[in-house]
């Protein structure tokens, strides 16, 4: 604790800011790891279930099992829009069996796009904080270091002694700010890049699923 206790007020403030950045960054990293892991796993399970099931209404009844999957959300939105179109159609049939010609494929496509955007927003939530930490924490640490060295040199000038024993402690105290800035920034940058890659993969899966869903709807209900 000695090295922290002897630092100046500004350096202490910088250290607290960096600690805040680090704590929040790691909280986001843990949260996103869990979120992305669940999204990936449940999407795989949902796709398996989707291709095995024969009817949309059967899939819709089991959606709660895949609540964290973005693909399930897409299906939910697309299926909801499909049912609305059906209900507005002239031909009224059994709602559990959808087999009518539809002219509203564009409506379903828009609903899927909206759901995709909403899921991307949900998955990317808080990652901007990681980017901010990665880019600013080293500079905040550097500011603390510069301030600490300035104070140290001022003290050296006043004491009139420039021996290593006088200079080194001040410099060491100042450099700890840069070290902690880097400790906060490196995991944040790594986490940000990792999650961006994972989210891109999930977005690709969502696009593929949207296309497949529209194809199925078009094939089944319009006969094209």
């Amino acid at each position: 604790m000695g090295i922290f206790a002897t630092t100046g007020l500004v350096v202490k403030l910088v250290l607290f800011v960096l600690l805040y950045f680090s704590v929040v960054s790691w909280a986001i990293i843990f949260f996103k790891l869990l979120q992305v892991h669940r999204a990936k796993n449940e999407s795989e399970r949902f796709l398996e279930f989707f291709w095995k099931a024969k009817r949309f209404d059967a899939i819709n009844a089991q959606l709660d099992r895949f609540a964290n999957s973005p693909l399930a959300v897409l299906f939910n939105e697309g299926y909801g829009e499909l049912k609305k179109l059906m209900e507005k159609g002239e031909e009224k049939q059994d709602p559990t069996v959808i087999s009518t010609d539809l002219a509203g494929i564009d409506n379903i496509s828009r609903a899927l796009r909206r759901a995709t955007t909403s899921e991307i927003t949900r998955l990317e939530k808080y990652t901007t904080f990681l980017a901010t930490t990665g880019s600013t924490a080293p500079f905040i640490g550097l500011f603390g270091t510069v301030w600490g060295i300035m104070t140290a040199f001022k003290g050296i000038g006043e004491t009139g002694s420039a021996s290593l024993a006088v200079v080194a402690p001040g410099i060491a105290e100042a450099l700890i700010a840069t070290a902690i800035g880097l400790v906060a920034a490196i995991p944040a940058v790594m986490g940000y890049n990792h999650f961006q890659h994972k989210i891109r993969v999930i977005v690709g899966e969502m696009d593929s699923f949207s296309t497949e869903f529209l194809n199925i709807v078009q094939r089944t209900f319009t006969g094209k």
């Binding site: 704590v23 909280a27 843990f30 609540a67 399930a72 939910n76 299926y79």
Partner: peptide
Amino acid sequence: MKHTLKRREPGPGGMLVCSFL
């Protein structure tokens, strides 16, 4: 009627405590 999905996702608050610890 559109089905509402029930997510079992812990919020970032719990992770904040975990990170602090």
